[in-house]
Amino acid sequence: SDPSEDRAPESARVGNIPSSTSALKVPQLKVAESAQGPAAAHTTDTAGYNAMEESVSREKPELTASTERVNKRMSMVVSGLTPEEFMLVYKFARKHHITLTNLITEETTHVVMKTDAEFVCERTLKYFLGIAGGKWVVSYFWVTQSIKERKMLNEHDFEVRGDVVNGRNHQGPKRARESQDRKIFRGLEICCYGPFTNMPTDQLEWMVQLCGASVVKELSSFTLGTGVHPIVVVQPDAWTEDNGFHAIGQMCEAPVVTREWVLDSVALYQCQELDTYLIPQIPHSHY
């Protein structure tokens, strides 16, 4: 159930021909089969995070001529859309010479989310990475209204306002976009420790780096000194050995919190207090 199309920051360009055919990675995205229709094609874990990302398996898109002007500035990904909605975005992107990729990268400028009429969405990996990267996180209605009015409308009017977990109007995407000089995790050293489900560890690490944190791979690698705040992030329900995560405190002095601390902080683009996310640790033995 991992969102495989989000696994690594590679891009698939639509609308320009790469210098070599080997560089072309066409979105071959799968549809989750469901008797209840597209709305039930998501699996949500206890964290309220949509693990099964969206989309559609299609034939290789038709490439435009390399001489045609390509908008190098805009690059989009989509999240939560049905196959039909994805194809509408594809046509919109081609019309406006926008790069459409299946994986979010540093070059991505827009994340197009499936939302309700009030621009509230589910939480997906692309949603988190879009906010963390200060990108435009907009409703699919931006595409449909632009098509209806036959011009590209202003993104401000379609920015995602909230999500089904953290609140319907928290304005996290807007706050992140306007606060890239004040990253929420700066001054923190974060170790993403142990197993994680539904989200590859490297993507979680990239997320906290985008928010200004330094990533530490091992508990023994924390910088011990003033001005640096170490934090260990774990996902308790992913551990097979009972309560192993309670013993992390015996290996390092850092506070240990659940992954929800990261996800909530990123969604709201406000660093949350650790208290409600802390995992009790077995104290050091004193002999």
Rank of each mutant, 00 (worst) to 15 (best):
S1N: 05
D2L: 08
P3G: 15
E5F: 03
E5Q: 07
D6V: 06
D6L: 07
E10N: 07
E10V: 15
S11H: 05
A12D: 03
A12L: 11
R13N: 00
R13E: 08
V14P: 07
V14R: 14
V14F: 06
V14T: 11
G15W: 04
G15S: 08
G15N: 10
N16A: 07
N16K: 10
I17P: 12
S22R: 02
S22C: 08
S22V: 07
A23S: 12
L24R: 10
K25R: 14
K25S: 06
V26Y: 04
V26P: 10
P27V: 15
L29C: 10
K30G: 13
K30A: 09
V31M: 12
A32R: 06
E33I: 06
E33Q: 05
S34Y: 04
A35T: 12
A35V: 03
Q36P: 14
Q36F: 07
A40L: 11
A40E: 05
A40R: 11
H42R: 07
H42V: 04
T43D: 14
T43K: 02
T44Q: 15
D45P: 10
D45C: 13
G48E: 12
Y49P: 12
A51L: 06
A51P: 15
E54M: 11
S57Y: 10
S57V: 10
A65L: 12
S66P: 08
S66L: 06
E68A: 14
V70S: 06
V70L: 08
K72Q: 09
R73G: 12
M74P: 04
M76P: 01
M76G: 03
M76Y: 03
V77A: 15
V77G: 04
G80P: 02
G80K: 04
L81A: 00
T82F: 04
T82A: 09
P83F: 07
F86H: 02
V89Y: 02
Y90L: 08
Y90D: 07
K91C: 06
A93G: 04
H97R: 11
I98E: 02
I98A: 11
I98R: 02
I98G: 06
T99S: 08
L100S: 08
T101G: 04
T101R: 09
N102G: 14
N102K: 07
E107T: 15
E107L: 12
T109G: 01
H110Q: 00
V112L: 10
V112A: 02
M113T: 11
T115Y: 00
T115G: 00
D116A: 00
A117M: 15
F119A: 05
F119Q: 13
V120L: 02
V120H: 04
E122T: 13
R123L: 01
L129H: 07
L129T: 01
G130V: 01
G130L: 00
G130S: 03
A132S: 13
G133N: 09
G134P: 01
G134L: 05
G134F: 04
K135I: 07
W136G: 00
V137P: 01
V138W: 00
V138S: 01
V138Q: 00
S139P: 01
S139V: 02
F141Y: 10
W142P: 00
W142F: 03
V143A: 07
Q145G: 01
Q145T: 12
Q145C: 03
Q145L: 05
I147G: 11
E149L: 11
E149R: 14
E149T: 14
R150L: 07
K151P: 01
K151L: 11
K151S: 14
N154V: 09
E155T: 06
E155H: 15
H156P: 05
D157L: 09
D157I: 15
F158H: 02
E159R: 01
G162S: 01
D163K: 01
V164S: 10
V165L: 02
V165D: 02
N166C: 15
N166I: 12
G167V: 01
R168D: 11
N169G: 08
H170L: 03
H170S: 03
H170I: 04
Q171H: 07
Q171S: 08
Q171T: 11
Q171A: 02
G172C: 01
P173D: 00
K174A: 04
R175V: 04
A176P: 00
R177A: 01
S179W: 04
Q180A: 06
Q180F: 09
D181G: 09
R182C: 11
R182S: 09
R182V: 07
R182P: 13
R182L: 14
K183Y: 12
K183M: 05
I184E: 00
I184L: 14
F185A: 00
F185I: 00
R186C: 07
L188G: 01
L188S: 05
L188M: 04
L188Y: 03
E189Y: 02
E189H: 10
E189G: 05
E189W: 03
E189Q: 09
I190V: 14
C191Y: 11
C191L: 13
C191N: 08
C192V: 08
G194P: 05
G194T: 07
G194V: 03
P195I: 12
P195G: 04
F196G: 07
T197L: 11
T197S: 15
N198T: 15
N198R: 13
M199L: 08
P200M: 02
T201P: 08
Q203S: 05
W206K: 02
M207E: 02
Q209L: 11
A213M: 02
K217I: 10
E218A: 01
S220A: 15
F222R: 09
F222K: 10
F222P: 15
T223W: 03
T223M: 13
T223R: 15
G225R: 06
G225W: 08
T226Q: 15
G227T: 10
H229R: 13
P230K: 14
Q235P: 06
Q235T: 14
D237G: 03
D242L: 12
N243M: 14
N243F: 15
G244R: 09
G244C: 11
F245L: 13
F245W: 13
H246M: 13
H246I: 09
I248Q: 13
I248M: 09
Q250R: 10
Q250S: 14
M251V: 14
M251L: 13
C252R: 14
C252W: 05
E253M: 11
A254W: 12
A254S: 10
V256S: 14
V256E: 00
V257S: 06
T258R: 07
T258F: 09
T258A: 10
T258P: 07
E260A: 13
E260V: 04
W261G: 00
W261T: 02
V262C: 09
V262S: 01
V262T: 01
D264K: 11
Y269T: 11
Y269M: 09
Q270R: 11
Q270W: 05
Q270P: 01
Q270L: 09
E273R: 11
L278E: 15
I279G: 03
Q281R: 12
Q281S: 12
Q281C: 05
Q281L: 13
I282R: 11
I282L: 11
I282M: 13
P283V: 09
P283T: 09
H284R: 14
H284P: 09
S285W: 09
S285V: 10
S285A: 12
S285E: 13
